[in-house]
């Protein structure tokens, strides 16, 4: 009875919606598998690296001396001392680089977006920044060596390292600032002009604050990259196992240089120092990224 009813109710034409075909199901499974595999393939090395660093580097950095002592006067086999000198160097060189390159980079970005649109100078600048983005770090180091040390006659110093790093960081800051300023809607600029606010004040008080969180993120990413650079420091600075507070003169260690130096040390102490420095560098960069997140959250546009 019920079946007969259902047969009667069934429309003469076929149903509009049909089940997923076997071919499509197979394709779906295949694509899902491939994407998942690719994801795992990308994650495995990442986790592996982190695990190696933590496994080998955690023990050395847990010693009290690690954060408060240098390696001054220690023999290669003496498993003591710390990385204070290199931590100081990494942070100070990074901050000096940021201090110099952030104003330059942000101002170039502002010029490109707010003043130079379509001009010849802007096109040349964009081209140069693009080239600079691709310059290998050792070339930046060699350039500063030739300019700062050979031509100007200054000595190797942390400042020289920062100048070389500047060449690597400025393009990152310019690019980020440019992109962030471009997505600030023109309507905001016009709203500000319509209130009788001059252009420069519009840029400083309306446009830059609107783009701030993105710019800060870019700066922090640039900083993280620059702090891990070894090549320029090898060329224009040099490793010192003792503490040097003077940015303008003398060798100053940083974490990559410490690793490079201790890598050649076959003793257990060398192994511990190398991995300890690696762990410390990862921690510092993580700290800066965290700081970037906090700052960009704090300065983000609130709804």
């Amino acid at each position: 009875m019920t079946t007969a009813m259902m047969d009667l109710e069934r429309p003469a034409t076929g149903p509009t919606f049909q089940g997923v075909s076997a071919g499509r199901k197979a394709k779906n499974v295949l694509a899902t598998t491939l994407v998942t595999l690719a994801f795992l393939l990308a994650v495995v090395p990442l986790v592996w690296v982190l695990w190696s660093v933590v496994e080998k580097g955690l023990e050395p950095i847990l010693r009290a001396d690690w954060w408060s002592h240098s390696l001054s006067g220690l023999r290669p086999y003496e498993d003591m001392g710390g990385a204070y000198h290199a931590i100081y160097g990494t942070v100070v060189q990074g901050l000096t680089t940021a201090l110099l390159s952030v104003p330059i980079g942000v101002m170039v970005g502002v010029y490109l977006v707010e003043y130079g649109t379509g001009t010849r100078l802007a096109r040349i600048t964009t081209f140069m920044v693009d080239i600079l983005t691709g310059v290998p770090s050792i070339v930046a180091g060699l350039f500063i060596y030739a300019l700062w040390i050979t031509i100007f006659g200054f000595s190797r110093s942390a400042l020289a390292v920062s100048l070389a790093l500047l060449l690597l960081m400025v393009p990152v800051v310019v690019r980020t600032t440019e992109e962030m300023l471009r997505i600030v809607p023109n309507e905001l600029r016009e709203a500000s002009y319509a209130l009788g606010i001059p252009k420069w004040k519009t840029i400083v008080k309306v446009v830059l604050p609107t783009a701030l969180s993105g710019i800060v993120t870019g700066i922090m990413l640039g900083l993280a990259r620059v702090m891990g650079e070894t090549a320029p420091a090898l060329v224009v600075g040099a490793y010192a196992p003792y503490i040097n507070f003077n940015v303008f003169d003398g060798n100053m260690a940083n974490l990559p240089l410490l690793m490079n130096d201790q890598f050649a040390n076959p003793e257990t102490a060398g192994f511990n120092r190398t991995w300890g420095a690696a762990m410390t560098l990862v921690l510092i960069i993580m700290l800066f990224n965290l700081l970037a997140t906090v700052i960009s959250r704090w300065s983000a546009i609130k709804k």
Partner: peptide, 20 residues
């Protein structure tokens, strides 16, 4: 022109309050 715009105000098609 800045003075002109201070004297002659403008309201736009899409509301555009400053988001920050």
């Amino acid at each position: 022109p800045v003075e002109v715009r201070r004297t002659i105000g403008m309201v736009f098609q899409r509301p555009n309050p400053f988001p920050t």
